[in-house]
């Protein structure tokens, strides 16, 4: 009797064990490695998970986005503080690269290279990438910057100590210290507008609809349509920041 019981339990042990091991093996074989698909972090959780798309082919470099961002968010007017700005890349026939962003593009762009010297030229709007593995969040010593459950990277200006470590850690130059407040500041994806059902200011004023945003967790969202139908790329994918700002037609010169 005693022996039989122990035999049973041993069999039970092997059975359970093989189920667990087999299960892990099967799960490992069938779990897609989505990291490669996005070159970034796959969408997390079940709620909203915001992603942004910018179509470089559509950007006309009017700088309305940069201007609207400053007006909507009371960003200091001086040309050293931008949550959103536009760069013009000009690749010349001799192969040299010229990058310009006079006042972040707010006053418009003047073509500085004559047509005959230009190989190609294009505008690149820049803003916070709302990285899923944000280097800026990682380095904040006090937890004054964080990713919300919806995937927006925010700053808590009532808790920020102004150590500027996050400014150093952002590979995209998207952060600055507000000279009046002494705390870090960055794009909030206009969370105060999203919450009221409005678009972020820069999306609102884009005349060519070069910018779109949406829920990466929703298969029918604009952003997923955009990702599906364009050849998208993030800036500096080698840094593995989990950037969620996807560019269509991004040239390799853009950094």
């Amino acid at each position: 009797m005693e022996q039989k019981k122990s035999k049973l339990s041993r069999r039970g042990f092997f059975k359970a064990g093989s189920i667990i091991v087999g299960g892990i093996a099967v799960a490992a074989a069938f779990t897609p490695f989505d990291g490669i698909l996005f070159a970034t972090e796959p969408p997390k959780g079940k709620g909203k998970w915001y992603g942004i798309g910018i179509d470089i082919n559509k950007c006309i470099g009017c700088g309305k986005c940069a201007n609207a961002c400053k007006l909507e968010n009371n960003v200091p007017k001086e040309p050293f503080y931008f949550r959103s700005w536009v760069e013009q890349y000009t690749i010349k026939n001799d192969g040299s690269i010229l990058v310009e962003s006079p006042n972040g593009g707010i006053d418009g762009f003047k073509q500085t290279v004559p047509d005959q010297d230009i190989f190609k030229s294009f505008f690149v709007p820049k803003m916070c990438n709302h990285c899923a593995k944000s280097p800026c969040v990682q380095v904040c010593p006090v937890g004054a910057t964080f990713e919300t459950p919806e995937g927006i990277v925010l700053v808590d200006e009532n808790y920020c100590i102004g150590c500027r470590y996050c400014v150093q850690a952002c590979p995209y130059g998207c952060r600055f210290i507000n000279p009046e407040k002494g705390t870090a500041e960055k794009c909030t994806l206009c969370i105060h507008r999203l919450e009221k059902g409005l678009q972020p200011a820069c999306f609102e004023v884009c005349p060519t609809e070069a910018r779109i945003f949406g829920d990466l967790n929703d298969p029918g969202s604009k952003i997923n349509y955009f990702l599906k139908n364009h050849t998208c790329m993030v800036i500096k994918p080698n840094l593995n920041t989990g950037a969620k700002l996807y560019y269509n037609a991004l040239s390799s010169e853009v950094r």
Binding site: E72, G143, T148, N158, I191, R193, L198
Partner: peptide
């Protein structure tokens, strides 16, 4: 330690509401 600290992660959960409460300028 602030009250709402740590509720959602290593930050003040209230900071989300504070960010959401900011003034709008563009009407749509």
């Amino acid at each position: 330690k602030p009250n709402s600290f740590g509720k959602l992660g290593h930050y003040r959960a209230m900071a989300i509401q504070e960010n959401e409460a900011r003034e709008l300028h563009y009407a749509g």
